[in-house]
């Protein structure tokens, strides 16, 4: 008897039913619509902030400056606090210990839910490369298997990375060309192959 044939025959019948597939498609469409609405909302909120900041700048700007006279001392410009507008739960919410935070990191980075992965030689994102395709997947796969090591600091060439996830979560971390990864300034450093 052939094992493969027998196994395949048994598993052919294990499948989703029509109802489940319909419900799943509907949930996916709803999630997609929700995402578009959120993006629209964030764009609108950003536009409102820029408008209010601009308005405040004009209102509180001394009359001389508004009329084009340049002053050496510029008065304090009142700004509108944007705190709380983009409230985003921390990516490690719920994780208490360093080990739990690392578990969360490995879980998220290996989830395949990353929309953009930036890596650059400085902390300035504008100069960073955006990894995609196999390079992104390979790095994520390796990072999802990173294990704690005894190292106390990163050595070798360091890259500053930022992973942006589909649900808006952001993780900043640093990697070195010797296969180390560090979350922010956390004491524990992990190694990946």
């Amino acid at each position: 008897m052939n094992f493969k044939e027998s196994y395949k025959k048994d598993y052919e019948d294990i499948k989703t039913d029509e109802m489940f597939r319909k419900r799943l498609s509907a949930e996916m469409n709803a999630a997609s619509d929700g995402r578009k609405i959120r993006i629209g909302f964030y764009a609108a909120a950003a536009a409102v902030i820029l408008f209010v900041l601009g308005l405040n700048f004009l209102i509180f700007m001394p009359a001389e400056e508004q009329s084009g006279i340049i002053q050496e001392q510029v008065g304090t410009v009142s700004t509108v606090s944007a705190e709380g507008l983009f409230t985003q739960e921390k990516w490690y919410a719920g994780a208490e210990t360093d080990e739990e935070i690392w578990d969360k990191f490995r879980e998220l980075i290996g989830s395949g839910d990353i929309t953009s992965l930036y890596c650059g030689s400085t902390e300035q994102l504008g100069e960073a490369d955006i990894l995609s395709g196999t390079a992104e997947e390979e790095l994520c796969r390796k990072l999802s298997l990173a294990v704690p090591c005894e190292d106390k600091e990163l050595s070798g060439e360091i890259s500053f990375c930022m992973a942006v996830f589909g649900d808006g979560k952001i993780i900043k971390f640093r990697i070195s060309d010797s296969g180390q990864v560090q979350l922010g300034n956390a004491e524990i450093i992990c190694k990946y192959e």
Partner: peptide, 19 residues
């Protein structure tokens, strides 16, 4: 079923492009 649902929702949220 839970895993299947989770995977497909991750797919739609990720907006990933495939080769």
């Amino acid at each position: 079923q839970d895993i299947t649902q989770d995977v497909f929702l991750k797919y739609i949220r990720s907006e990933k492009k495939f080769n």
